[in-house]
């Protein structure tokens, strides 16, 4: 897939996120009344199509990790007082449609196998006392009726599939290097034959030479199993490489969404443009290139600016940007920008 050969258009909806809000209430005062909320995700719409990889990028505090957690529906168990709004519809292969946003444990169980997660830190996400066979076999035990021997066989073939030896099944996580652990994490996610995998910074803890191996593996698996990824990362060059489409987040909102080419090569939102121009290039000749500098730091999601969240750092901010959330405009087919003034950035 190079620039000239267009990526096959995917049309079948797999995940449909509408108006998702994730607010963490903040309590204060003598009586511990709710005095505010950390608006980690503040109303986003996002569609993931079957077989596509959608990259979710943004800096710390953008809410990208929270979106991932909302999709795998672990926010309620982690933070019981979290306030969820909006819907996350899963259109599964067997024709079932279900809103999983905050879905209760019992009803979620039917959907857990379809939505899996790969974490950033492959070591802390693997229980050190369990063998690889137990780690990968655990989801199978919970979600399938396979016998012990069938499970074992599945585990070993999964190990082989992610590029590890079958005999590794009896080893413990600490016996592996970072890259191998991430392969184990991927095998575990694959074990239930998921339709979508949420990968939260899956390569950022790995050494440079190992990152490429894991990225290649993930791409192969996506093709072979018709998988969709929600690929959450801060490294734009890797996100561009692996994603069909990219959504850029800032302070809980999606500010720009489009095909990978559209967003990375022809960014329109002032934030995306600054973000892309800040990415260092592995080419010393490009050193002098024009940069869009952003002043200051990202505000905390607790004190989110009114109107457009980006206006405090935006080079083209107007007084009117403080009034209302920015209107979403279409740049071209499939490319939208949450900024009415984007043309001024040309």
């Amino acid at each position: 897939m190079s620039l000239t050969s267009p990526t096959p258009t995917r049309t079948e909806t797999l995940l449909s996120i509408r108006g998702l809000k994730v607010h963490f209430p903040v309590y204060g005062g003598v009586l511990r009344r709710k005095v505010g909320a950390v608006k980690a995700v503040d109303g986003i719409d996002l569609e993931v199509r079957r077989g596509e990889t959608i990259g979710l990028v943004g800096e710390s505090g953008s809410g990208k990790t929270t979106v991932g957690r909302a999709i795998i529906n672990v926010l309620k168990p982690m933070y019981p007082d979290v306030e969820l709004d909006g819907s996350i519809e899963v259109h599964s292969r067997d024709g079932l449609v279900q809103d999983v946003n905050g879905l209760g444990r019992a009803r979620m169980n039917a959907f857990r196998p379809k939505i899996q997660m790969v974490f950033q830190d492959p070591f802390s996400s693997l229980n050190p006392r369990m063998t690889v066979a137990q780690l990968i076999g655990r989801p199978l035990e919970l979600h399938t009726k396979l016998t012990r021997d069938e499970r074992r066989e599945r585990v070993e073939s999964l190990l082989e599939r992610v590029g590890l030896q079958r005999s590794y099944a009896e080893r413990f996580p600490h016996e592996f290097s970072g890259g191998q652990r991430q392969r184990i994490g991927i095998a575990r996610a694959l074990s239930t034959r998921p339709e979508i995998i949420v990968a939260d910074e899956p390569v950022s803890a790995l050494d440079v030479s190992v990152q490429a191996q894991v990225v290649n593996l993930m791409q192969e698996l996506a093709r072979d199993f018709d998988l969709s990824y929600v690929f959450i990362a801060h490294d734009l060059s890797i996100v561009y490489h692996i994603s069909d489409r990219i959504a850029v987040m800032y302070l809980g909102n999606v500010v720009e969404i489009g095909s990978a080419e559209q967003v990375y090569m022809r960014p329109r939102h002032p934030y995306t443009r600054a973000l892309v121009s800040a990415v260092p290039h592995p080419d010393p000749k490009q050193r002098g290139r024009q940069r869009i500098r952003l002043e200051g730091d990202i505000p905390t999601p607790m004190n989110k600016p009114s109107g457009c969240g980006f206006r405090t750092r935006c080079p083209i901010a107007k007084a009117s940007c403080a009034d209302l959330p920015p209107e979403v405009q279409t740049v071209e087919v499939g490319h939208t920008v949450a900024c009415p003034h984007w043309r001024e950035m040309q």
Partner: peptide, 8 residues
């Protein structure tokens, strides 16, 4: 290092 010219 991913090269944008060889995306994917």
């Amino acid at each position: 290092i991913p090269d944008p010219k060889h995306k994917g």
